[in-house]
Write a protein that binds this DNA or RNA. Structure first.
Length: 113
DNA sequence: CCCTTGACTATCT
DNA sequence: GAGATAGCCAAGG
């Protein structure tokens, strides 16, 4: 039985465009269930169809899995393939929906340095 | 019904 | 910046 919550989460996650990432809390809020960050992970695992789960990361923009775990490696790989820049496990601000300032995107993102 | 667990988050030291 | 603590909510034993 699929709950309303799960459906909402799947919808939001499937709508994340390639090269961009969202936080668990953001997804939950977007789905209409604030503070359900922890449930998001569960909902994604329960999805009957493949979902771009790798585009969902923690609030710190870091991969949620452990460094040595399979999930971490897999997610990092997928993100890199989609053009997401990662520095020491952290996703570049440009890859998020927050730091998508036109200047930064056009300039090619000089914020890091 | 109580307790534990989890792909979390925010705050404090 | 890293570690500890508390808050959070749903699901399962």
């Amino acid at each position: 039985m699929d709950s309303k919550f799960d459906k909402a989460i799947w919808k939001i996650v499937s709508q994340i465009t390639a090269g961009r990432v969202m936080g668990y809390g953001e997804v939950a809020s977007a789905a209409g269930f604030p503070r359900h960050a922890r449930m998001v992970s569960k909902a994604m695992s329960r999805s009957p169809k493949p979902l771009p789960w790798h585009r969902v990361v923690k609030a710190d923009r870091m991969i949620a899995f452990e460094m040595d775990s399979e999930g971490y490696i897999k997610q990092e790989k997928l993100l890199l393939l989609e053009g997401v820049k990662i520095r020491k496990g952290k996703i570049s601000p440009v890859s998020t929906d927050k730091g998508k300032s036109l200047d930064e995107v056009l300039w090619g993102f000089p914020p890091d340095v």
